[in-house]
């Protein structure tokens, strides 16, 4: 499955699971105690308090969403099949517990006496198990996203800059992409639909997220100069990633394949992991290897010129270091 689609699917699964697991919170008050377990004769033989059920559903929601979000953001390579198995299990367990909690609450609400409610019909049980398996399958499929550790990239040849030794150079490029505007709008639309359906909190969070994606990643500006590499995000050029020349080990213009960098968007983190990439399309981009072993990459047009400017600054820096030493 395409990684960016996989991540969107994972995000949707997480949201639906959370909404389902938190279903006892919806639609008014719950009975104080209700039947939560039934014997083979379909008669209640286990009971639980409303608070207990709520705690259970909230913890399930938190755990499942945490696992799925971790899988979405994961950049660390694992044994083959690790992430699909984990996300698949999270999806299945979340779906099963969320679904059965929702069903239990539904039964108690629609019964004159919540303590002697008859058990679920076979059809309802099949629906719960089926939806849990569906969640698991979708999450497992979408979980096949762990990116390759060290993508083999074609290094592009840097052009001659034709600059004299005294010349000061600055290279700048900006890029905007409709992809993130579309993704953002889609998320806002889902938020609006959820708001209409009464899922207030989720709707607001999703709409805000959509807005952030639109504003934050629809446009980037990339500069290469004596300060180093600067990537600014969004229409107001903030936040920024700044890599000073003194932190750089090498700079190259490379051919970026989003599949090898974990998909589109802002991938990874220079602080938390040792790799980060801003991937707005496939094709040429700048790759900076840092002295501390991290790697940063950004897709940008005419990356070869940018790389040449930084390579010149790097050479100047090491020449100065040699003279002073």
């Amino acid at each position: 499955m395409n990684r960016s689609i996989a991540r969107i699917v994972l995000a949707l699964v997480a949201v639906v699971l959370a909404a389902e697991a938190l279903s006892p919170l919806r639609g008014g008050s719950l009975p104080q105690r209700m039947a939560t377990h039934w014997g083979g004769d379909n008669r209640a033989n286990g009971w639980s308090s409303a608070t207990g059920l709520l705690l259970l559903s909230i913890s399930v929601a938190v755990v499942c969403v945490a696992v799925l979000v971790t899988a979405m953001l994961a950049r660390t390579p694992r044994v083959r099949g690790f992430w699909p198995t984990l996300t698949g299990l999270a999806g299945f367990v979340g779906g099963a517990i969320g679904g059965s909690t929702a069903l239990t609450v539904h039964l108690a609400r629609n019964s004159p006496d919540p303590l002697t409610t008859p058990g679920p019909t076979p059809l309802q049980l099949v629906a719960v198990i089926g939806s849990a398996m569906l969640f698991g399958a979708v999450a497992a499929l979408a979980g096949r996203t762990a990116p390759a550790r060290d993508p083999l990239s074609t290094v592009l040849r840097s052009p001659e800059l034709g600059a004299g030794p005294q010349d000061v150079l600055m290279w700048h490029r900006s890029m905007s992409t409709r992809l993130f505007v579309l993704v953002g709008l889609a998320v806002v639309a889902v938020g609006v639909v959820l708001a209409v359906l009464g899922e207030g909190a989720v709707a607001i969070v999703m709409a805000a997220l959509g807005g952030l994606i639109i504003a934050g990643l629809s446009r980037i500006g990339v500069s290469a100069d004596q300060r180093g590499l600067t990537v600014s995000y969004g229409w107001w050029a903030w936040p920024r990633t700044v890599i000073p020349v003194r932190d750089m080990a090498s700079v190259d213009a490379i051919d970026i394949d989003p599949g090898q960098w974990g998909g589109w968007g802002y991938r990874g983190s220079l602080r938390l992991f040792d790799r980060a990439a801003v991937v707005l399309r496939s094709g040429e981009g700048l790759r900076v290897k840092l002295r501390n072993g991290s790697t940063f990459a950004v897709t940008v047009d005419d990356a070869a010129t940018g790389a040449a400017v930084l390579q010149r600054e790097l050479a100047d820096g090491s020449a100065n270091a040699n003279t002073s030493a």
């Binding site: 004299g164 005294q166 150079l169 290279w171 010129t305």
Partner: peptide
């Protein structure tokens, strides 16, 4: 875009 300045110019 590439901006090249020659301080000696």
């Amino acid at each position: 875009m590439l901006i090249r300045l020659d301080p000696a110019s």
